[in-house]
Design a protein around this nucleic acid. Structure first.
Length: 430
RNA sequence: CGGGGCGUGGCGCAGCCUGGUAGCGCGCUUGUUUUGGGUACAAGAGGCCCCCGGUUCGAAUCCGGGCGCCCCGACCA
């Protein structure tokens, strides 16, 4: 994109409503605009990041054998009456009435709906196990939205649902999902740690939360330094992986167990704060039974599928990653999800040599690049590029351009390289 | 849902106490200037002062009632 023709309304000053750093940076970098309390419009750079995260989540779900579906945001109240949650869910659920006085709701989650879909179509034990997910907008009418997209009312989320014939199968699915999640977070460029969790109002008896480490996190976390290694989940054996994930110590303050904690060598004990970006549950037959979803078994009997649900907060990840990856100057995007791999900074707009070289670079990089072609001073371009957090800055000044040399700056480290055009392009095309 | 605060050009704010018809910085437009870390000067554009009602000759300012937004707590992906 050409910055001069882009809807990227960056701000020099911080809007008063933004308290935490990710919210401030998202507003200052022009990624989002608040439209109502806890409800945001996503502008071009914001939606690019959101889509990139969603795509990685999607690919890892596919790789784990889950099938993608898309369910509506609006659901019928009757569906929720079947499980009993219409009354149980409380004020967090946004309830809507249509012109015929029919009761509807904006979905906060989709266990009922997916169960209903499977109930209509899946009749035999031979059809299971299956696993389906969607990436869709949800709404929870939080009492107090805050922290920008970290705690919005409307949010974008991957929700997946596993259907198995027995508990053993469901537990295997659960473990596979945990592995898929760790791979997902690794690809996103962040460290997330699975921690034992309460099952909350969804119910069940096996659940983990995934937390990203960030000093501004909402909950205190305690974990073994082994998690920092990052290769803890490098192997493909699900059982070994799960064994490892659940024996290395990690707990949020709610579940923190001092006795176990003290068995860990002091040098490996880590305390910090975490932001929850995903949660997985096994909850058995809660919905299959309440909604009467059974399949015929081999002996002619009924089997109520064992279910689990698997969530990743996609829009929340945008904020959470910024909390984990920023400095005083702005955002530091991991390569995989940056809105642009590189910004091309033309330091002498209007000069035929720099203009020509920048156009050439822009053509070579295409959609991966943001070309700062504005008639701004160098300082302004540097400041905005740092703020927006592009992994690379291709700095094109008149001196270098004359010799077909550009300067590459790596945002994360501040390293600078003086390189011929071809080498610079090759480096950016990682 | 308890407690606190704030609504004034796109953003950050002053003015309100002590009513007299709106101001500053940033941004935006034009010109000159500057040219590797948010340049300087000049001239401009842009405002139902959140809304409704009341008091008054006169309300951004005082009074009443709404609405919106933020923060702390309880709650949650």
């Amino acid at each position: 994109m050409r910055l001069s023709k882009s809807l990227i309304p960056t701000l020099k000053e911080t809007p008063a409503e933004a308290q935490i750093v990710s919210h401030r940076l998202m507003l200052r970098a022009g990624m989002v605009r608040q439209m109502a309390s806890g409800i945001y419009a996503w502008l071009p750079t914001g939606i690019k990041v959101l889509n990139k995260i969603a795509q990685i989540v999607r690919e890892e779900q596919w790789a784990a054998g889950a099938q993608e579906v898309l369910m509506p945001t609006i659901q019928s109240a009757d569906l929720w009456r079947e499980s009993g949650r219409y009354d149980a869910y409380g004020k967090e659920m946004l309830r809507i009435t249509d012109r015929h006085e029919r009761e509807l709701l904006y979905g906060p989650t989709n266990e009922e709906m997916i169960t209903s879909i499977f109930r209509d179509s899946v009749k035999s034990y031979r059809d299971l196990p299956q696993n389906a997910f969607q990436i869709q907008w949800k709404f929870r009418d939080e009492v107090r939205p805050r922290f920008g997209v970290l705690r919005g009312r409307e949010f974008y989320m991957k929700d997946g649902y596993g259907f198995d014939l027995d508990r053993e199968g469901a537990v295997i699915t659960y473990k596979q999902m945990m592995l898929a999640y760790m791979r997902t977070f690794q690809r996103l460029g962040i460290t997330a740690i699975p921690m034992r969790a309460d099952t909350g109002q969804i119910g069940g008896d096996l659940s983990h939360e995934f937390h990203i480490l960030a000093p501004t996190g909402e909950s205190g976390v305690f974990y073994d330094a082994d998690f920092e290694a990052g290769d803890a989940f490098a192997h493909d054996d699900v059982e070994k992986f799960y064994e490892q994930m659940t024996t290395i110590y990690a707990a949020t303050d709610e579940k923190h167990d001092l006795a176990t904690w003290e068995t860990i060598p002091e040098a490996r004990r880590r305390e910090g704060r975490g932001i929850e970006v995903g949660q997985i549950f096994y909850f058995g037959t809660k919905y299959s039974k309440s909604m009467n979803f059974s399949v015929n078994g081999p002996d002619g009997g009924k089997i109520f599928p064992e279910m689990g649900s698997y969530g990743i907060g996609v829009s929340r990840l945008v904020g959470a990653i910024i909390e984990a990856k920023h400095d005083e100057a702005g955002i530091i995007w991991p390569d995989a999800i940056a809105p642009f791999k590189a910004a091309i900074l033309n330091l002498r707009q209007g000069d035929s040599v720099t203009d020509g070289l920048c156009e050439e670079l822009y053509k070579a990089l295409g959609q991966d690049a943001l070309y700062d072609d504005r008639e701004e001073r160098a300082g302004a371009k540097f400041a905005e590029a740092d703020l927006m957090g592009h992994p690379w800055q291709m700095i094109v000044g008149p001196r270098g351009a004359a010799n077909r040399m550009v300067e590459l700056k790596r945002r994360a480290t501040g390293e600078r390289f003086e390189l011929p055009v071809d080498e610079a392009l090759a480096k950016v095309h990682f």
